[in-house]
Design a protein around this nucleic acid. Structure first.
Lengths: 215, 215
DNA sequence: GTCTATACGGCGATAGAC
DNA sequence: GTCTATCGCCGTATAGAC
């Protein structure tokens, strides 16, 4: 599904689509503008990717699959290192959040655009099925591990806390400009301070949210 | 700017716009579909509200101004009660979050649609100026109070924590379906449990994020 | 002031020529 | 594989009826 060796034409179209969709949104970006940015004819875009919605899903899938694999790998290591116990709350949250920061900081705008796409996708009901398709497997595993780390919490509260963590991460990373002062705080070019802040915020938040249910 | 006594036609158009924009997004909702839902001619929408973007801003402004007033009022009371000291972190967060829940739970889908609108608006750079116009005054006051409640924290970290709180609240309230199990947990029809979870999450998160900066 | 009717170029999508 | 032509829907502008 996410072949790394594609025709240069297809890659150019996907890159153009990623940029246009990230800046203008799905309905805001036109197929014609994507074709122009990719340097191809309009009909060629449709020949390779079909409908606009299919192109959109392809654009998301390309990186979503990669990110899911990276997170799964991190969780594998964490679970292996923790036997016979379970990974700590801090470790689980780090497995989820750190991969995005790692991917974001080297390379071009690709991953930055991707996070903006995800932010839009989660804000619109239109893409509910799409998000389920690519994120549910890791989400399910995350909730399971979080619940083990907070065994006294209500299961729906754990799920709630997981969603809060996801939204926190997406909003921070997709934002452009508002967080710059924090992002550049310590070592320029690295987001380590922002990363540490988010992890601290989420770990403390999850722990607190999971303690309120105990009447 | 937000007159409460308007012509029925204008109100009908705003209600229709609110619903269509919330479900389909700005570019996804068409002026024609809004006109049809409002029961008026297409050109009449443009006569009353001008361009599509202007209609969008009017739709947001109508409730944004009301919400800002409610939050300011709560902060006034909190500051008055706290003299000569400052309101606690819990109080400040509650002043920000509780008004939305109160407005959401009585009435029709109006406020639910509004929160979905805000979620989209914050996800797209296109509306950066719009959000500044309506939210910056309260945001500035919130950051000020939060910093007083966490005086040892770095000022940019306080701002960061504020943004995390905002995103947490927006995502939770704009979501449709994913949080239902949590929402209906205690008293059906009331979101008090979800409200308490969010506040607990944010208070603990802010406190944690504001403690990481102290090297 | 309120409202209707109509027209224009850009859009996504499709069918078919080369 | 690549490109042209075409269709119906979109936002916008305008002329004019009440």
């Amino acid at each position: 599904m996410a072949r790394s060796t594609q025709s240069p034409t297809k890659t150019a179209i996907l890159d153009a689509a990623e940029a246009r969709f990230a800046h203008m949104g799905f309905h805001g970006a036109s197929m014609r503008s994507i074709a122009k940015e990719a340097g191809v004819e309009l009909a060629l875009v449709q020949y390779h990717f079909g409908k606009k919605a299919d192109l959109f899903e392809h654009t998301i899938a390309r990186r979503a699959i990669l990110l899911a694999e990276k997170r799964s790998g991190r969780l594998d290591v964490a679970e292996r290192d923790a036997v016979p116990g379970n990974p700590s709350l801090e470790t689980i949250v780090a497995c989820f959040i750190e991969p995005v920061f790692e991917l974001r900081q080297h390379g071009t705008d690709g991953w930055r655009n991707y996070v903006k796409l995800i932010a839009q996708v989660t804000a619109l009901e239109e893409w509910k099925d799409l998000t389920s398709r690519y994120f549910d497997p890791v989400a399910h595993r995350m909730v399971l591990l979080l619940h083990r780390a907070q065994p006294e919490a209500n299961s729906s509260d754990v799920y709630f806390a997981y969603q809060l963590m996801v939204s926190t991460m997406i909003t921070t990373l997709s934002d452009s400009g508002r967080f710059e002062s924090v992002m550049k705080k310590r070592k320029p070019g690295k987001d380590t301070h922002a990363r540490d802040l988010i992890i601290a915020f989420c770990v403390a938040g999850i722990r607190a949210a999971c303690s309120t249910g105990k009447t």
